[in-house]
Design a protein around this nucleic acid. Sequence first.
DNA 1: CATCTTCCCTAACAAGTGTTTGGTAGATTA
DNA 2: TAATCTACCAAACACTTGTTAGGGAAGATG
Lengths: 206, 206
Amino acid sequence: MPKQKQQKKPPVTPSPERREELLRIAADVFAEQGYNATTVRKIADAAGMLAGSLYYHFDSKESMLEEILRTFLTELWDGYDSVLSAPLGPRETLEALVTESFREIDRHRSAVAIYQKESKHLVSQTRFEYLVESQQRFEKAWLTTLERGVTDGVFRADLDIRLAYRFVRDTVWVAASWYRPGGGHSPEEIARQYLSMVLDGIAVRT
Amino acid sequence: MPKQKQQKKPPVTPSPERREELLRIAADVFAEQGYNATTVRKIADAAGMLAGSLYYHFDSKESMLEEILRTFLTELWDGYDSVLSAPLGPRETLEALVTESFREIDRHRSAVAIYQKESKHLVSQTRFEYLVESQQRFEKAWLTTLERGVTDGVFRADLDIRLAYRFVRDTVWVAASWYRPGGGHSPEEIARQYLSMVLDGIAVRT
DNA sequence: CATCTTCCCTAACAAGTGTTTGGTAGATTA
DNA sequence: TAATCTACCAAACACTTGTTAGGGAAGATG
C-alpha cells in the first residue's frame, strides 16, 4: 500500500450501473485469486481497461472490497430478517435459513467466497467493523433457533450447542467454494439434500 | 516477485532443527495473515531475525510454503493409509477417517488452514501438482467408503453421493478455522460429536 | 456552434516486494 | 593458534504495488 492521503470522493459522478458491473468483475477476480493476490491491474484487465481508470469509479482497491461485502451482507440480512420475523417453529426456521443461505450463495457466489477467505483478517480494521456486527447477529440468530429447537424437543439435547452451530454454519457456507450456478442443482435442491443430512444424518436408521 | 534466476541449493548446510522451527513460525503467520499478505519481513520479525537471513535456510518464500504443505500431507497420508488398509466396515472406516482428520487438525492446525485457503490457486502451478494428486486420492478414498456403506446398507441410499462426500469433507476440515488446541475439547471428543451429527443428524428421531 | 460531462488513457510516483551479495561474530575443529 | 563452519546482519537490487495527475475522445446539452 504505497500512498494514502485524504479520502474525499471525486467531484465527478460515475454511473451506478458501470460501478456495479465493475464490482461484479472485481468480485470474481477476488474470489478466484484472493484479495491480496489480486492486483488492480488484473481487475482492469478483466474489465478491458487500464489500472488507473478504475480510480474514476472507486477511491481505492479496498473500497471495492468493502462495497462488495457490504452489498452482499445487506441483501443477506434482508432475506434472513424476513425469515426470522415469520412465525415459524425452530425446525422450520432452520430449514428456511439454510434454504435462504443457499439462495444467497447462488446470487452472490463470489462475495461469499471472498467473505470466507478474507473476513478473518479484515475484522481488525475499523473500516470493516460491520463484519463483526453481522457475525454476531448471525451467531445469535442461529444459536437462538437451535436452543429453541432443543427446548421444544425437536433437536437433540445431548449435543454441544455451539459445536452444532459451527457445524451447521460451516456446512452451509463452504458450499460456496465448489458451487457453480447452473450446475444441475438448484439452490433449493441442494438445500433440501443438505437439510436431509444435517437433520437426519447419513446413516440408515436402525 | 522481483527476480527469479536459477534454483540451485546453497552449498551450506543449515540444521534441520532450525529449519523446522522457522517453518513452524512461518506456518503460523501464513495461516493468520494469508500467504500473499505475509511478507518475508513479517516472518523474519516473528523469528527474531532479518528478512535476508531466511535465505540462508530456504530458497524462497514459495519453498517454505511447499515444504509446509508437503510435510502436512505426508503425515496425513501416513494416518489415512493405515486406516484404509485396516479391515474395517464402511461405517468404522468413516469414523476412523474423521477421527484421524481431527487429530491432524490438532497437530497441523496452521498447515490445514493454509491448505484450505491457498490450495485452490496453487494447483495450477506445476510445483504444487502433488496437491492435485493428493486431492484425487482423498476423494477416491471417501467416495469408495461412502459407496461401500450404501451397498452394505449402513448409509442412506437416497442421497447424492458426491454431495454427501463434500458435506463430510468440508464439515471436517473447516473446523481448522476455529479449532484451537487445548480449548477444552480433545480432537477425539470433537470427532465423536461431529460423527454423531453427521451420522444421526441433529433432529430428534420420531 | 461551443461547453460540459462522462469515461477512459498515458505516464509517472513512492512505498513495498522477494531476493542477492558480501561480510562477520562466535563456536567448532585441526 | 589458525582454519573452518554455522547462522546471522547490513545494504542494496530489480521489480511490483496501489495510486495520482493531466489530458483527450465521444457524446449530451446549451
